[in-house]
Design a protein around this nucleic acid. Structure first.
Length: 281
DNA sequence: CTCCAGGGGTTCC
DNA sequence: GGAACCCATGGA
């Protein structure tokens, strides 16, 4: 068991359900089961402390980094909320969200799967991927498959994922990572724009997926992962294109806005297209 | 039956 | 460069 006494206001449920990770499953009676980098744990809060079962002191540094427990989040949130009243409302909605630092290849694959998809199905596909190709870790959990494993497969070998056209993208990502063409080390050493461009050499990785990987794996808070929901939320929250907040924190702000938007903002608007522009029939 | 879900590639102009 | 269309799945 691994115990973190000081969690600085961490909200485990909000952090794991808010759509930045797809490798955790809620447990009956509370808590979560999940994996990262070949480590399987169950996580739960005991008061203000975070308890990880299945981990030991040797992995303390890993999980501290994973859950961003080394950062002073209360101070951080106070700083980047100071610039925007409406953003402050978003942060107030779920102040305990922490932007995780997830393993690179797992994050890349999960957000490739996420494209034009919804969270329940993303979660189901990642589950089948780990169960089918990942090493068993006990307790019914499986590690995320290594890049070399996926790199050796063909798209039709991944039919069991029922991931549609994304299977081809996963294999291209795996081959580029396994061959070293794309690496976490290279991305870390590059400035945002070049890191994004390197990620986008992977087939199926566009600006949105690239920014999500930079934010949710490499903790690049300066990037801004824009997607359709985010655009909708931003349009409502900042109708005049007002600055979100001070510059370096734009990326992290997205996660708070997103969580707020999912719960608070109306999902549908009245701007339905009255006519369907179906051309030549 | 239709719509659409936290995109991106391809093909047009 | 931008717009339209395509891609597979599965739920509502």
């Amino acid at each position: 068991m691994l115990l973190f006494e000081e969690t600085g206001g961490l909200d485990l449920d909000a952090t794991l359900r808010c759509g930045q990770t797809f490798l955790w499953r809620p447990l009956e009676g509370g808590g979560w089961a999940g994996t990262a980098a070949g480590r399987a744990v169950t996580a739960r809060m005991e008061g203000k402390a975070l308890v990880l079962e299945g981990a030991d002191e040797a992995d303390r540094a890993f999980w501290e980094r994973y859950f961003a427990l080394d950062l002073d989040y209360p101070a951080l949130l106070g700083r980047f909320c100071a610039g925007s009243k409406r953003l402050a409302a978003c942060v107030e909605h779920s102040p305990g969200i922490r932007v995780l630092r997830q393993p690179f290849f797992e994050t890349l694959c999960c957000f490739i799967i996420s494209q034009n998809n919804n969270i329940p199905r993303i979660t189901a596909i990642t589950g089948r991927l780990c169960e089918g190709l990942g090493a068993p870790l006990g307790g019914g959990l499986h590690a995320f498959p290594a890049p070399e494993v996926l790199a050796a497969l063909r798209p039709e070998d991944l039919a069991f994922l029922r991931a549609g056209w994304r299977a081809e993208y996963l294999i291209d990502a795996a081959r580029r990572v396994a061959s070293g063409l794309v690496s976490e080390a290279a991305l870390t050493s590059l400035p945002d724009a070049e890191a994004r461009a390197l990620l986008m050499t992977v087939k199926g990785v566009g600006p949105k997926v690239a920014d999500c990987v930079l934010l949710y794996s490499l903790s690049r808070w300066s990037v801004v992962p824009m997607d359709v929901w985010m655009k909708r939320a931003m349009a409502r929250l900042f109708p005049r294109g007002a600055p979100v907040c001070c510059r370096p924190y734009q990326g992290i702000a997205q996660q708070f806005i997103f969580d707020y938007a999912r719960d608070v903002l109306p999902r549908k608007t009245a701007d339905k297209k009255t006519t369907k522009p179906r051309r030549n029939d």
